[in-house]
Design a protein around this nucleic acid. Structure first.
Length: 581
RNA sequence: GCCGAGGUAGCUUAAUAGAAGAGCAGCGGUUUUGUAAACCGCAGGUUGGAGGUGCAAGUCCUCUCCUCGGCUCCA
């Protein structure tokens, strides 16, 4: 039994149930999807809904529908396939405007329908033989959503009901359990509990603030980037947060992304724009003097904070915000240098992700969209280069046909959050637009002016987004080298405070982040607190430790691992820093 | 932006339209603690905001802001 057939059949059964409950409902489409199925409906405005809303169903309406579905399944209704002429189909679906639209667009002269019970649907199939094949315990309606007809926001919005379905009851239970587990690692909850970042209504939507502990991690990430990129020939830049609107008109961003830009600010008689990206500044730096082929490739890097207007409904914790900092860089090179540079970028991007513990990701290659800047020949060459590099590195990737940005093809590396949603981190993009618009040049061997190639790239993407995914990846239990508070020292009694202080300064001298917990609380209480705060090491010091210049070590996830000399403990953790464990 | 669901103290939450209450955290004491919550006390609220209906609003209505689940979008 094919699970997709079951899921697809459940979509039909759900549609049949909805039709019985709300006569006059109009149907969109209802496919099987990962883990389940959905169906889109347009409900007649006069139907009484549990939710009391006029347009769409809400969660409160689902139990009723699920119950009706189970009744239909128990009737063991057969799925009957029929091939009919389009003319006939138009008659059957005369009240179904969306189905009529589908019939019109389908190729050929005939279409197929599936009937189970009294419900007939336009459908290519395949389906299960009969509803009786479905185990009542293996599916569940999970959520409602608004969804535009055909996914186009200009079209009317339909009500979508999602369900999950599996072959066995155990699988369904397992799935529901993992969802609950996933919620526990949600970076928004952990970010609050571990005091990593703050989102505040009064500050503004989508404008996260890094709290002290989050800021420690950010600084470590920034230092890591700074050090590594500097050693690879990158030069660092700092550029302003606003720039003359004319700059953005020239770059094309004003025309292309107006909807996502904040309104210009009037300063004296000029208009200034909050920067949505750093590129034009970097181009201006490049153009600030004459460049020779001998100096290429030139690599400019910046941790640039940018602001983009995102629609209110899309904001999401740290992963989708309105103000964020990109680990941005631009590589300006000759055509011959392209392949080598891209290869280095992909290699380095993956290494960086590995350092942060990400082993699972998906790579996408996005090709030319309909509307594009630059020449066809340039696009072909650049796309070929990207493919060549991915092939050479033996990386699996998916092609996102036409998914490139208007100014060039790109490679994206996406990592997953706790709920399996993918977030773009590394992106490597060709740009045929800015070199043109800003007339970038270099002098070649023969003393002639040439137009260079330009590559944009971000390895982590946005620091905010990366941090959000990082929190979920580690469930807040950051590896030792990243943990904002690495070590807690708990003196057993007040007589041990002095020794705790000595121990602490010894650790601090070696560069470790260490706190003495000498508040008026029990040892147990402090240990509990340390566990909840996911502190990598908790050291308890009392008479025994003092006498032997030792510490009693409690390791996160392992518990008490025994007493050891302080020097030995320091050696141990120094090694962990080196290994980025 | 659109379709739904929400917003009560720093956090987690209780309260048929009829006296806004608790636990944790915080603060003050007592206790000097040996591996996941010592004890006593104190303080903490314009129930997101504005307007409306009612004798009476956390609770009902309208608007608005923010958050959440989706859709569209994401340079």
């Amino acid at each position: 039994m094919n699970i997709n057939n079951i899921r697809h059949s459940l979509a039909h059964i759900m549609a049949a149930a909805v039709k019985e409950l709300y006569p006059g409902v109009k149907f969109g489409v209802g496919p099987a999807i990962e883990n389940g199925f959905y169906y889109d409906f347009a409900l007649p405005s006069e139907v009484p809904l549990v939710s009391g809303t006029k347009k769409g169903l809400s969660l409160a309406d689902l139990p009723k529908i699920e119950k009706k579905m189970k009744e239909l399944i128990k009737k063991d209704l057969k799925f009957v396939k029929k091939e009919i002429s389009k003319k006939e189909a138009k008659k059957i679906f005369k009240d179904q405007l969306y189905k009529l639209e589908l019939i019109k667009k389908l190729p050929g002269k005939t279409v197929t329908t599936y009937q189970n019970g009294e419900f007939v649907d336009l459908c290519r199939g395949p389906h299960i033989k009969s509803t009786g094949e479905i185990n009542l315990q293996t599916f569940k309606l999970t959520k409602t959503a608004g969804a535009y007809w055909k996914g186009d926001e200009k079209n009317p919005m339909l009500t979508r009901i999602y369900g999950v379905a599996f072959e066995t009851r155990q699988e369904l239970e397992k799935y529901l359990k993992t969802q609950i587990e996933a919620e526990k690692r949600d970076h928004r909850k952990l970010g609050q509990r571990l005091e990593l970042f703050l989102l505040d209504e009064e500050i503004g939507a989508g404008l996260p603030v890094w709290l002290p502990k989050g800021a420690v991690i950010r600084k470590i990430i920034e230092d890591e980037l700074y050090q590594k990129l500097s050693s690879q020939g990158y030069q660092w830049l700092y550029t302003p947060h606003i720039g003359n609107l004319n700059l953005w008109k020239k770059s094309g961003h004003w025309d292309f992304y107006k909807e996502n830009l904040y309104s210009p600010i009037k300063i004296d008689e000029e208009q200034y724009l909050l920067k949505p990206m750093n590129c034009p500044f970097h181009v201006k730096v490049y153009n600030s003097k004459i460049r020779s082929y001998k100096n290429l490739p030139i690599k400019f890097a910046e941790l640039g904070t940018v602001y983009r207007y995102e629609k209110s409904g899309v904001l999401h914790g740290l992963t989708r915000v309105r103000g964020f900092t990109q680990d941005d860089a631009h590589i300006i090179c000759t055509s011959e240098q392209m392949a080598k540079e891209v290869e280095e970028l992909v290699r380095y991007g993956l290494n960086m992700l590995k350092d942060f513990g990400f082993k699972e990701y998906n790579i996408y290659l996005s090709t030319r969209p309909e509307k594009y800047a630059g020449t066809l020949k340039g696009w072909e060459k650049a796309t070929k280069t990207l493919k060549y590099v991915l092939g050479k590195l033996k990386l699996k990737y998916k092609i996102d046909a036409g998914g490139g940005v208007f100014y060039g093809p790109k490679i994206d590396i996406k990592i997953k959050d706790s709920l399996g949603r993918e977030w773009q981190c590394t992106t490597i993009q060709f740009d045929f637009n800015l070199p043109d618009r800003f007339e970038m040049k270099y002098i070649d061997k023969k003393g002639k002016k040439q137009k260079p190639y330009m590559i944009h790239r971000a390895l982590l993407g946005s620091l905010e987004r990366f941090f959000g995914v990082l929190i979920e990846h580690y469930i807040g239990a950051f590896p030792f080298w990243l943990a904002p508070e690495q070590i807690w020292i708990i003196p057993v009694g007040s007589g041990h405070k002095k020794y705790a202080k000595q121990t602490s300064s010894q650790l601090a001298k070696n560069g470790f982040r260490c706190e003495i917990k000498d508040e008026n609380e029990t040892v147990s209480k402090k240990i509990r607190e340390g566990e909840l705060q996911k502190i990598p090491y908790i050291l308890v010091v009392g008479d025994k430790e003092m006498a032997k210049k030792s510490v009693r070590v409690r390791e996160r996830g392992k518990g008490d691992i025994g007493m050891m000399k302080l020097e030995r403990f320091i050696d141990k953790i120094k090694k962990e820093i080196e290994e980025k464990k």
